[in-house]
Computed example of a mutant assay.
Amino acid sequence: MQGQISLAPAGGSLPAPRKIAIFRALQLGDMLCVVPALRALRAAAPRAHVTLIGMPWATSFAKRYSAYVDELLVFPGHPGFPEQAANLGAFPHFLSEVQRRRFDLALQLHGSGGLSNALLSLFNAERQAGHYVPGQYCPDADRFRPWQEEEHEVLRFVRLMEFLGMPAQGTQLEFPLGDADFRALQRSHADLPAPGTYVCVHPGARLPSRRWIPERFAEVADRLAGQGLRVVLTGSPDEAAVVAAVQRSMRMPSLDLSGKTELGALAALIASARLVVSNDTGISHVAAAVATPSVIVSCGSDSVRWAPLDHDRHHVLSAPVACRPCMHLECPIGHLCATAVSADAVAAAAARILAQHPTGALS
């Protein structure tokens, strides 16, 4: 019933937590994948104050998803957590602040728990929940679910909420957009193409080992331009070089918006596109969240874990290499996961998706 939340899978209810901490100090794509779980949490505990413990950039995430998250408490990093450099000088104050808040419930949504479960135990929350690897440290057998490596990233956290007695509220991603996002998009360039007349090509990824070949992105972009679609190249400021490499290799004109759009404007751009062609990176999850069809080349990442759940609207191409998933910055053995995916295969997938969804996000 409303106001009660079951946190003991064997049965029984405890009063709904009033103060909940969520630990997930990760990048954009990882955060988008947990939104369905946050939606289930909010439905089960509508009056709770939810604090996200995350990376500094996630201030904007907490603001955008204010329906599910009330505030961000910045995690300063810690040795062993590779997502950000550890600010050890700030860690004692951070830990003191977490403990001072006396959370009723701390949810470990950061990963398998190999490192994060021990950290979570330092928070001194009344209750803890999350995942653990069988055979490794498990803070509470009743509230920690066994980690399954092959499980889809969205589904694993929805199932964790169900395990804790919080019914699922759907598995779809979402990216709330407002008028300010579309105004910011309009300010990014004087001659933006009209909605539905362009494709977004995103050749970057945080790790070079996760990037498909720029010349093949260019070949696919040229074919799409040949079908009458304008090509918009996107990327972060750090990805300007790879975007420029794609543009130099193209025969057809393209619009380079890399580094020119903040996240909200970029999502607005994607929401109005016919199609997105990208690596398996955060932009692929943005496309899924705004329902824009996409073709994703998965180089090095675990495509089973990260592929969009809607296989009709989103198509993932990957090569079956034994070294996947890869955490190398640069591939040391020839980058077969990228070279084995041809431009013909990606262009053919794009043609199929465009035919099936002739009006992009609206179809």
Rank of each mutant, 00 (worst) to 15 (best):
Q186Y: 03
P176G: 09
L120P: 06
V133P: 05
P176D: 08
F123Y: 07
A184S: 15
R127Q: 13
R183F: 13
A190S: 15
L177A: 08
L120M: 15
D179C: 13
A168N: 05
G135A: 08
Q148S: 12
G114F: 08
Q128Y: 11
G135F: 07
P146K: 00
N124W: 02
L119T: 01
D142R: 15
L119A: 04
A118I: 04
A141M: 13
P193R: 12
R156P: 02
N117P: 08
R145M: 13
N124C: 14
P193C: 10
A184I: 13
L119Q: 03
A194G: 08
Q148F: 14
H152F: 11
L192F: 04
H152V: 06
P146H: 04
L185T: 09
Y132M: 02
Q128W: 00
G196E: 06
S112Y: 12
F182Y: 14
L192D: 05
P146A: 10
F175I: 02
P167L: 04
F163I: 05
A125H: 00
R127H: 14
L109K: 03
A118K: 12
P134F: 02
L177P: 08
Q169F: 09
H152E: 06
D181M: 09
Q136T: 06
L105E: 04
L155I: 14
A106T: 10
